[in-house]
């Protein structure tokens, strides 16, 4: 929103993320087909759909981990182009939590959380550590700060990953199937952490199969299939009265 060349209109200032006619191909495979979606600030979006439907690809486009080939994506008013500077600028404001945690195994939990603040945000080490400890407190594992990721359980690692992303004070958080590689008894602790995050008004896009979480936390649920958005609706009508045949089929399959 700084320079006039960016095609953001004033009345869209409350739009955190905008997909405008986005297409993406992997080689000749058409992975995203004409995706249009506006995420408002503070909005919680849950994306669901069968595997290979493009939901991960969709959120990976938000921070430039994947490149789209047609259409435009605006994140916090900045258009994602191939300009790596601009992508880095967006990445600083967008936190991401992965299915496989992707913590840095050679660094302690605390160092994982302070690395980017110190080197990217140029925050003094002392200050970064205080902030990271406060975040570890928030995800309820301050006592693990000096350990290495390999010494923690999956649920604890994922909470560290959330704290690490939050340490950059992002405006938007992306979750790419954050509970899919966890043992069942650890899913709740991660979902609770995400719930707490939703309560403080964080803008979130969550790709997940946790339908209970979706119903409870989401403002809107996005259903994707075959690279297209099929249906977008508030959670209650989405689950109780799905409109599209493919949505109904999908919900029947996962809710047994």
């Amino acid at each position: 929103m700084t320079s006039g060349e960016l095609p953001t209109r004033r009345d869209q200032d409350d739009v955190a993320i905008a997909f405008v006619g986005v297409h993406k191909w992997y080689g000749s495979f058409h992975a995203l087909r004409n995706v249009n979606l506006r995420v408002r600030r503070g909005e919680r979006i849950v994306v669901c759909g069968p595997s290979g439907s493009g939901k991960s690809t969709l959120i990976r486009c938000v921070n430039g981990l994947e490149e789209h080939q047609r259409g435009s994506i605006f994140v916090d008013g900045v258009e994602l182009t191939r300009n790596i500077r601009r992508i880095d600028e967006v990445r600083r404001e967008v936190g991401m939590v992965f299915q496989t945690f992707n913590l840095f195994p050679h660094l302690t939990v605390l160092e994982n959380c302070t690395l980017a603040p110190i080197w990217v945000r140029k925050i003094p080490r002392r200050e970064a550590e205080t902030m990271a400890m406060a975040l570890l407190e928030r995800v309820k594992i301050p006592e693990q700060a000096a350990k290495y990721p390999g010494q923690l359980s999956g649920g604890q690692q994922q909470r560290v990953a959330i704290a690490r992303a939050l340490a950059m004070s992002p405006k938007i958080m992306l979750f790419d199937e954050p509970t899919s590689s966890l043992d069942p008894e650890m899913v709740k602790e991660v979902l609770d952490t995400m719930r707490a995050l939703a309560e403080i008004g964080m803008t979130m896009i969550v790709v997940t199969h946790e339908m209970g979480f979706a119903r409870q936390v989401a403002d809107r649920v996005v259903f994707m299939d075959n690279g297209e958005i099929i249906e977008i609706n508030a959670p209650d009508p989405f689950f109780d009265d799905p409109k599209h045949e493919r949505t109904r089929l999908f919900l029947r399959q996962i809710l047994h």
């Binding site: 921070n63 430039g64 981990l65 790596i84 880095d88 990445r91 600083r92 967008v94 936190g95 991401m96 992965f98 496989t100 945690f101 992707n102 913590l103 840095f104 690395l115 980017a116 080197w119 990217v120 690490r164 992303a165 950059m168």
Partner: peptide, 16 residues
Amino acid sequence: RGQYEGAMALGLHYPL
């Protein structure tokens, strides 16, 4: 690959 993605998602540029 996840290590690269984890680092990139935090906004670390290539040399960092």
